[in-house]
Amino acid sequence: MRCMVIVKATADSEAGVMPGEELLAAMGKFNEELVKAGVMLAGEGLAPSAKGARVRFSGSQRQVVDGPFAETKELIAGFWLWQVRSLDEAIAWVRRCPNPMAGESVIEIRPVFEAEDFGEVFTPELREQEERLRAQLEGKR
């Protein structure tokens, strides 16, 4: 399964305070571990909402609202996309993440919807792979 792992914004992150050297190093090490374990698919840090915008929909109307946005705790400061086997595994990884902010902070884990089913017929291209594997299996027995 995949999880989106969301680092919630804080007053500091919204004020554009950049993480210190120590935190950057710790976060770098953590990210490296995620990559080495084959867990990390993607990840980015986000600029404060002051640099962002929202588009509000109301029926057929669209209204553009420039940042910053007030509800700091509802905003996000960064995210990862992880490949894990279970929500528990994602939790176990988040537990070993350095605190991403100077003070109190929250990381939220949200599973991504995924189609679980795989089809049964393959193109010649895929058949070919299957045949070769079968040949390999038989050869090695």
Binding site: A37, R85, S86, D88, E89, I91, A92, W93
Partner: peptide, 10 residues
């Protein structure tokens, strides 16, 4: 137990 399971996997 679920936590241990996850730790084990890692």
């Amino acid at each position: 137990h679920r936590t241990i399971d996850a730790v084990w996997r890692i």
